[in-house]
Design a protein around this nucleic acid. Sequence first.
DNA 1: ATTACTAAATAACGAGTAG
DNA 2: TCTACTCGTTATTTAGTAA
Lengths: 235, 235
Amino acid sequence: MASKKKWYETKEELETLKILLTLAKLGALNKHVTLSTRNLAKILGFSQQSSSRKLKKLAEEGYISRLVSPRGEEVRITRKGLSLITKYHEELSNLLKTVSLGTVMLKGTVIRGLGEGRYYLLLNGYVDQIKKKLGFKPYPGTLNLKLKTMNDIVKKAELLKTPGIIIEGFSNGLRTYGRVKAFKAKINNVENVAVILPERTSHGLDVLEIIAPFNIRKKLNLKDGDEITVTVYLQ
Amino acid sequence: MASKKKWYETKEELETLKILLTLAKLGALNKHVTLSTRNLAKILGFSQQSSSRKLKKLAEEGYISRLVSPRGEEVRITRKGLSLITKYHEELSNLLKTVSLGTVMLKGTVIRGLGEGRYYLLLNGYVDQIKKKLGFKPYPGTLNLKLKTMNDIVKKAELLKTPGIIIEGFSNGLRTYGRVKAFKAKINNVENVAVILPERTSHGLDVLEIIAPFNIRKKLNLKDGDEITVTVYLQ
DNA sequence: ATTACTAAATAACGAGTAG
DNA sequence: TCTACTCGTTATTTAGTAA
């Protein structure tokens, strides 16, 4: 975040990005494209001289490979060039993911758990963090939902890539307990629950685990096979 | 593409983007954040004076709203600011999508098909296009793979969003046959096969269908449950 | 503490032109 | 035609301060 780069360098990087973008649109990501400095200058709105200078620098810094001849040049974006583009794309994606999406809705049916949830949710190593980061003392037991559509499974998979709230792992000397990612959520319009995604889990990819400050089954009067809707808050 | 903007304006826009990105990371997309010009200057690597000038300009141009006081300022990104971020995100996404990274690797296990592949791959409406667009006459039968990890399922889901090679649907007067998207691929290092993604399909999202100019099971000596690696060429 | 003005320093630019 | 050099011009940044 707090990049230690000088602004000047950042600015140059942005310039590089813009030029690479232009070259990419001309097809220079896959193959060498023929162009002239005058040509590029016209597209980007600066002089032939600047164009020459900038291309030269880009090549020196390894963002493009070029083959200069008296009749023009052949330019292609290198791996390094592509990775600059990718870097910014990821940065923007992460940013917009947390903002624009806001929530994800999933449907699942209640299934019987394995009872391990109860065990983990009695460990202070987890409970203390949950209190602090999710704002409630968890009822010792998870509600397990089986996701039915592939669409929902993919949505769950995308949660794995989304930042979320991290409950750190810990060790009690005897064994270590893994990290857990969590998202605040509501379930059938009841707020103040959370979806948890343990890094280590014995559940399949189509199972979603929910925790809450209360016994969800009782409060919502649920039995196995009931279908419920979960709204996950991405931030 | 060939933006008619002067380079100077483009440059300013890029600067604005970078500053907005930094502000966004501080949370200024959702709420007002407190900061000082010195503070921002330190993060971005320029002087307090430049920081002041730039923030002032950003506010004048409507990218941020700010509330200046002798003890600092409150800044928030406006709708216009967000749309600048979104604009660049889309530009980068499109670029990386169409030209994208070249290949995707997937792992799956061989499962028994339903035998419908054979039927479709004997229809001239499909065969002729496959010959032309994929370069081979398909063996009448598909190899079905079950994807095991969520990562791979997501990768397949992303193929659905990637352009690919389109085999058009057709009608023979009796019924219509849907469009199919295809990607050239290799499977366990055997080239010249293709992944097909029919628009209408009876398979789940975790099933990948492969066609080839030969009987894949025989040629690779495969039986149900065998794990194979598929390399999909995105272009 | 702040923000932000003005003036001096610095960096980027393009015209002219060589190769 | 082309790239890319020098150099005078223009744009941008920072230092020193005021408020």
